[in-house]
């Protein structure tokens, strides 16, 4: 088992009232799964993704990731954990505008202390795998949305994470680009990468092996 959420609650206090963002979430994810999280706006999809990605804390419940009890870990350990095992893909790509495609791919490796020669090899590998060698010296602004997201996914994958978290990865793309990205996810999943995506689209959700529906912070 890759991860397990038991009775997760997350809330904020507003005007003396407790507003639940997540309510009693129970979820088990096996390695190799492709899960789609669906639900209307404000249902807690992104919050759940952030909790799984360890970027947001929760208020109650247990979270186990690869035999580690995330809820007992200190901030720093938790950060190390997600840095090692989780890759993120964003709706608005979040590439660094001032860096080229190649440099954007290299960036996570630098913070993970890979040597220069290793980094070169891994970046070259990834450029090759995504067929973007020709674009390696371009800046994000010179790419189409689909191409930017391709770079975003390549960046998420570059240090071989066990889990990819994608928050509406096709949200800013047209349907053709979106389809290509979903095909890519499917292919990656077949190669063994676990994926959890948040999506609004029924069609995109179909790519996954399992769909989780949220409403008002609750799984239904």
């Amino acid at each position: 088992m890759l991860l397990q959420l038991n009775n997760i609650f997350k809330w904020v206090n507003s005007g003396g009232q407790r507003i639940f963002l997540l309510k009693d979430i129970n979820l088990e994810v096996e390695e190799g799964e492709f899960i789609s999280i669906m639900g209307p706006s404000g249902s807690g999809k992104s919050t759940l993704l952030n909790v799984i990605g360890m970027l947001d804390a929760f208020d109650e419940g247990e979270y186990n990731f690869l035999e580690e009890s995330v809820h007992d870990l200190k901030e720093k350990h938790r950060a190390n954990l997600y840095k090692e095992y989780i890759g993120f893909v964003f709706q608005s790509y979040h590439l660094l505008d001032e860096l080229t495609v190649q440099e954007n791919l290299e960036m996570p490796l630098i913070y993970k202390k890979f040597k220069g020669s290793e980094r070169k090899a891994m970046v070259a590998d990834m450029l090759d795998r995504f067929s973007i060698v020709g674009k390696k010296d371009l800046f994000p602004a010179q790419l189409s949305g689909g191409q930017q997201q391709l770079v975003g996914i390549a960046r998420a994958l570059i240090s071989n994470p066990k889990l990819i978290l994608a928050d509406e990865p096709t949200g800013n793309l047209n349907s053709k680009q979106g389809e290509e990205i979903m095909e890519l996810f499917k292919q990656l999943n077949e190669e063994g990468v676990t994926i959890i995506q948040v999506t609004h689209s029924e069609k995109n959700a179909e790519y996954g092996s399992r769909i989780i529906n949220l409403l008002d912070g609750r799984m239904i």
């Binding site: 950060a79 993120f88 660094l96 960036m107 913070y111």
Partner: peptide, 16 residues
């Protein structure tokens, strides 16, 4: 903020 957020998600520590 955006840039520092991005590099943090990708493994940069606060010191970095």
């Amino acid at each position: 903020l955006r840039n520092m957020g991005i590099v943090k998600v990708h493994g940069a520590s606060r010191v970095q």
